[in-house]
Design a protein around this nucleic acid. Structure first.
Lengths: 143, 143
DNA sequence: CAAAAAATGTAGCCAAGGCTAAAAACTGTG
DNA sequence: CACAGTTTTTAGCCTTGGCTACATTTTTTG
């Protein structure tokens, strides 16, 4: 009878789907950040940023390469493909909006930074738009 | 024991830690919900809620049992331990706050419901408190 | 009450994301 | 240039969380 149950409209399914892209989003964002800051991006730095072993970072990056977001050659520096850059830019903007929103809400920069990291992946277009408007309206003295 | 590299102030580490508890939180919340609604909780219903196979739900629930959050005997209904109940109640409250907050922000109930599912696990105490205050102040006409 | 149906459990596979240990490749001096 | 140190890669193991197929148990029902 297997027909293994439902495939109905289920919210948790979406949440789960998000999970699979979270890592990619986090990584391209960090890689873009490191390239901007240091002018290049090395595995070791990525691993340090995520506080994981370099082995874990290496394997994750291999997946991103497989998925066409990252490029590198053996022992070489890591860079983003055009697709990776586009994703990184989208994530950067979204992250900034969520962070600014939290700060506008009155959250301390530390908590805002911490929570934004986790929240950003779960903010849909409508919520993101509302957060942006709110941050602009109630923006911290930047008016 | 992990002594691997930096253990410095790293935001991603916290985000990752959250991950490991998300499943537990989601499950105890759903189990509590089903018990309240149906007067009991069967594996099949849990699986349906998460849109996963009963096998996956079964194994996840086995972990929750191992972790002292859930209790059941073979082929029997599923219930929460005192610890499970406490966690479920905490999650229920937090979820309600995040949801109400999003609605108060102007998000549609559909998006609010969807995003709350993902966001709730990443809301720290400070942010939760701020969301609660905001929802109370700007609460949807319920004043 | 026995056979069919439904629910639960077990075996075994896969991918992602952790890790350590050890090999290989680069770098930078002496 | 060689050797020491750093960085990256490889091998191998673990857990979580997804699945199908099949076995077992419970429930329903003819």
């Amino acid at each position: 009878m297997p027909k293994t149950e439902t495939n109905k409209t289920n919210q948790h399914a979406s949440v789960r789907r998000d999970h699979s892209t979270e890592t990619a989003e986090d990584y391209v964002e960090v890689i873009a950040d490191l390239m901007a800051a240091d002018g290049g991006c090395r595995l070791k730095e990525v691993a340090k940023r995520f506080a994981v072993s370099h082995v874990t970072a290496n394997r994750t990056i291999a997946r991103l390469k497989r998925d066409g977001l990252v490029w590198s050659e053996p022992y070489g520096p890591i860079s983003l493909t055009p697709a990776g850059k586009r994703l990184a830019e989208r994530c950067r903007k979204r992250h900034a909006i969520v962070y600014e929103f939290l700060v506008a809400l009155g959250i301390s920069p530390e908590s805002a930074s911490l929570d934004a990291e986790g929240i950003e992946h779960h903010v849909g277009p409508e919520t993101l738009s509302a957060m942006e408007k709110f941050a602009l309206r109630h923006g911290v003295k930047l008016g």
